[in-house]
Simulated scan of single mutants.
Amino acid sequence: MSIIAADCLNFVTDEHTTTLGDYSGWADLNRDRPPLSGLILNRHSWVFDEPGVPGFDNYGPDSCEYFEFQARTKMNQYDVDGAYVDIGKGLHYIEDLGCPFHTSVLNGQAHHLAYEEWVSSYWSELESALWVDRYYRIEDPSDASEYLAWYSHQKLARICDIMNTPNWESTPALTQEMVTITRDLLRETAMMNMGMIDYVTRYNSPNTIGENRVAISDYTTSYAYIDNIACSENMYLCTYITHTYIGDLEIWLGWKDESSPTYTETKIWDHQGDGTDNLALCINAVGFQNIHDWRLRVTDSYGGDQGYIEEFYDLVG
């Protein structure tokens, strides 16, 4: 699932996509190495409607957050390879919390293994649900993980009802309902997986974070910067601009070596679009492994229409 999430995001390199897959099973293979102090075993649950077992349950979201924080720390230290290792470890908890049986201590646990075996047997009908074109923008990994657990828990009772029905797998209506429920769970899990990768790998320009945005005024040049960030052989530099006549605009993407005082630039927009409102651009930057500083330069060449640089960010693959 983590490999498909990386493929859907496009900017993740083949090497780092493989890393995500290699480490997505780490938590199961290292039960004796829980990431959080006080844990007895490496556990992957968030239990609703029951108290859980102290030292065992309700640590899935915090464990996911631990690895996301570790990954971001490594990213900020320019250790992109190490960051993707920790992202892979953290995604395991997302994938488990997307399974309703990880949200209960007792309810339906007799079906836990049987459900996972059924999912495996029906994978050819289920897998396409993972190929999504949107994902969650995550601000707090633990809160996001808890939300996914809550979402999947809503499906638990119905899954158990179906599996308690004799010969349910030979009943087309029940089988199709199970497919529909499971595809919904997989889709939510996929969007959360992609969001977690985005959380670690995104660098936003301070000029456009939160309530900040850069004004674009008539006959002036506006700037947004991203400095001192990690880099990879594959990155996406993206911007979103609100403007009532994008044909007024010239836009350059610039980069510089840390030792250089000046930016090298390439023009990425040259008055196209005429009177169309607003502009979203993503530029694939390949071969910039040693570039940590970027600049967006926007010139409004005419009068009468104005706007803002709403976002300028980098995704590190």
Rank of each mutant, 00 (worst) to 15 (best):
Y245I: 01
I162C: 13
Q70Y: 05
L249W: 01
D140A: 08
M194D: 05
V80C: 05
G60C: 09
R295A: 15
Y223L: 13
T19H: 08
V53D: 09
T239R: 07
G90R: 02
S217H: 10
S104M: 04
Y122H: 14
W150N: 14
E139H: 07
Y223P: 12
Q154I: 00
W131P: 00
G254A: 10
G55D: 06
R187N: 12
I40S: 12
W118L: 08
V80S: 09
L97Y: 05
A114V: 04
L186A: 07
D227I: 01
F67M: 04
E116V: 00
E116Q: 11
I251Y: 03
D28H: 15
D96P: 03
D270M: 06
T17G: 12
N290C: 10
L130V: 03
G88T: 15
Y313E: 06
D274I: 01
P35V: 11
E139S: 07
F69H: 11
L20R: 00
S121V: 04
W26N: 04
E68S: 14
G275I: 06
P172V: 13
C160K: 09
I309R: 08
Y240G: 02
D81W: 04
R202L: 14
E265S: 13
R183Q: 15
M191K: 15
Y240N: 11
S301Q: 13
V85C: 14
D248M: 01
V47F: 01
T208C: 14
I251N: 06
D57F: 09
H153L: 05
M1D: 08
C8Q: 09
G195T: 08
M196R: 13
P35Q: 07
T189R: 03
V132D: 09
G247I: 07
L281Y: 00
T262I: 13
A129I: 10
E68D: 06
I94N: 12
E311L: 08
L156T: 03
